[in-house]
Amino acid sequence: MNFPVFDGHNDFLLRLHNAPDRREELWLKGEVDATGKAVGHLDLPRMRKGGFAGGFFAIYIPSPVAHDSADYQAMMNAPPYDVPLPELIDANGAQPVAMSMAAHLHWMARAAPDDFSLCTTATQIRAAMTEGRIAGVMHMEGAEAINPSLDELPLWHAMGLRSIGPVWSRPTVFGHGVPFRFPGTPDTGPGLTDAGKALVRACDEMRIMLDLSHMTEAGFNDVARISSAPLVATHSNAHAVSQSTRNLTDRQLAMIAESGGLVGLNFATSFLREDGRQSPVMGWDLVMRHLDHLLTHLGEDGVGLGSDFDGATIPEGIGDVTGLPALLQAMIQHGFGAELVEKIAHRNWLALLHRVWGA
């Protein structure tokens, strides 16, 4: 039994940014290696095949030192680890990259108007899904492209920005993110700066969703104290199952539930596995343990999917976007009813976005 999937997070725009001369191939046809094997997790044909109905497309500013280097991979595959993160990137350095990715997202809709729509309301997402188009939402993972004055925020909103994480794991002028550390807790450092608190208030006023996935526990607490909107972590897992700094404690889950918020299950193996390793060799048991835990603490209306496609190592049972039906089938076999699987697949996200955006 398959349902359309609305996904909380992917990094496909970074692939287009890194290969702009091949973006038509990457988007419309799909990239293959010398053996003919598909590269990456997403492209239009595979989205269609996997039932990918829409999701948040992240604008992310890569670090000066690549975090997919051999040294980084080796560290993440030999816990315990504590990956050093680069320093803050200012708006002058971030804005050209962010603008490039936003332009690629707009181009995706122009290049395939019958297959893809850039959406700014939940009503538009529902219409796109009904009409057979993939619904894309612009998200910013780390607010480096915005100055502390917030002068750029209305411009980004006009371009379609409807979701923003004030931080990725490195610090910004708005706050601090959790490092990639295992084992560890989200309580790793300071929370929001004064500029970050102003950003939260501005996002509430403009009804831009705030994403808490990479934020320290102190920053999470600051957002919960300031914001009147539901608390959302687009791509995070349960700390009780995997002791990663990127995962959410039961106290945080209780706060999200109380706010009427949502958590999108992250497919990244290093946040799923009990040992914190990145190895894709794993079964469905840990995926289901995270889902069971999230459902216990958030309820059936508070859990969705947040794949991290094209930004993480994914379990071999999923592999890429074409593995979404296998994941949904694993939920059914685990004992989830069809109604619950449909909620996790897309209904909970759409209901949440109506609550946050109001339309």
Score class of each variant (00 low, 15 high):
residue 2 N to A: 05
residue 7 D to N: 10
residue 16 L to K: 00
residue 16 L to Y: 03
residue 19 A to G: 03
residue 19 A to S: 15
residue 23 R to H: 11
residue 23 R to M: 06
residue 42 L to I: 14
residue 45 P to S: 11
residue 56 F to H: 09
residue 61 I to V: 14
residue 66 A to C: 14
residue 67 H to Q: 15
residue 73 Q to C: 06
residue 74 A to D: 07
residue 85 L to D: 11
residue 87 E to W: 02
residue 90 D to E: 13
residue 91 A to W: 15
residue 94 A to E: 12
residue 97 V to P: 00
residue 112 A to D: 03
residue 113 P to Y: 10
residue 115 D to W: 01
residue 117 S to R: 13
residue 118 L to R: 02
residue 119 C to N: 07
residue 120 T to K: 08
residue 122 A to T: 14
residue 134 I to W: 01
residue 140 M to E: 14
residue 140 M to L: 13
residue 142 G to S: 09
residue 146 I to V: 15
residue 159 M to I: 12
residue 170 R to E: 08
residue 174 F to E: 04
residue 179 P to V: 05
residue 181 R to K: 14
residue 186 P to Y: 00
residue 186 P to A: 02
residue 201 R to V: 05
residue 207 R to Y: 03
residue 209 M to C: 00
residue 209 M to Y: 06
residue 212 L to A: 08
residue 212 L to Q: 06
residue 248 L to A: 08
residue 254 A to K: 06
residue 258 E to I: 00
residue 258 E to A: 15
residue 260 G to I: 01
residue 263 V to C: 06
residue 265 L to I: 00
residue 279 S to Q: 04
residue 298 L to A: 12
residue 305 L to T: 06
residue 317 G to A: 05
residue 319 G to D: 07
residue 320 D to F: 07
residue 325 P to F: 02
residue 327 L to N: 02
residue 330 A to W: 04
residue 341 V to Q: 03
residue 342 E to R: 15
residue 344 I to D: 12
residue 345 A to T: 06
residue 350 L to Y: 07
residue 357 W to F: 02
